[in-house]
Design a protein around this nucleic acid. Structure first.
Lengths: 151, 151
DNA sequence: GAATACAGTACTATTATAGTACCATTTTTA
DNA sequence: TAAAAATGGTACTATAATAGTACTGTATTC
């Protein structure tokens, strides 16, 4: 099974919670209780999401977090990217470490592998946070401009 | 980062290798050497792939493995599914354990989450093993019948 | 200036993955 | 018919990644 971590799961719950009341400022403690996770864990995730540019934060008493952009402009790729790094499926598939694979010769898979990552990326980019707040909305999958069925 | 395990990476290399010469029977030792992994690891993977119905096997001297279907009829979902279980992204998203999530009330995310898994699934199902053997072929992403842009 | 809340970092425990070993079963061949 | 070669199944160990926690620092409000 391809899976993402528990923390990312929680992170999406947090983001979804905030998306339901975007105007207000929400303290970490309030969020932790609402989502059903411990405060330390919530703190950790909120920091990461803020650091990733998805949340605005305000310090001090009456401080808290709020969405940095409107829910329509935040996708699953943004959230997963902030919590787990760039979406890729294998070591040789990520953009940053091009020459990492030791068996370049037998690995013609590489280029295609990156395409697969791209496909998954596109799928996740097609789901906005706004869509997550409503019970069931059809998800759009956009084919990239270059993609067309092989005849 | 969403990632799949090393073993699955190896598994795809194995399948790609076999796809290049589908007619012949390939022994585990030959495959291990060709792909660049140890024999025990190759054995483990080949067993899993055979058990998953992706490989036919023949025992005894002169035995070995070969693709159970033609490369065009094997997709990334098949391979990943055989090595890591069904493609899903989180515990509550998989089909088999519907009531596992403890915070059902605050989790309206669930249904959408399953849709995301479905989107990823579709993306991976759009890549055949045959396409992996050629250096660079455009990958098709099919939108599901129900999917249509929200106006 | 005290209390509250976020920011950053480092550490520990847990869990999942990767890797290995062993024995059983089937088929070929000498 | 026996030995060798190859797959089938299972269980175990070691490693690595994840999850969780704690501590210190900084900003803001009252």
């Amino acid at each position: 099974m391809i899976r993402i971590g528990k923390l990312t799961d929680y992170g999406i719950l947090i983001m979804t919670y905030l998306a339901r009341d975007p105007a207000r400022l929400h303290a970490a403690q309030e969020i932790a209780q609402a989502v059903g996770i411990t405060l330390p864990t919530a703190n950790k995730l909120l920091k990461m999401l803020a650091r990733g540019g998805l949340l605005d934060s305000q310090r001090g008493t009456k401080g808290g977090y709020s969405l940095a952009r409107e829910p329509e402009a935040i996708t699953m790729v943004d959230i997963i990217g902030a919590l787990e790094g760039p979406v890729g499926l294998t070591d040789c598939g990520t953009a940053q470490q091009p020459g990492n694979c030791q068996r370049e010769r037998s690995c013609s898979v590489k280029a295609n592998w990156q395409r697969i990552s791209q496909a998954v990326n596109d799928a996740l980019a097609g789901v906005t946070l706004a869509e997550m707040t409503v019970p069931s909305q059809p998800i759009r999958i956009f084919a990239r401009p270059s993609a067309q069925p092989v005849t």
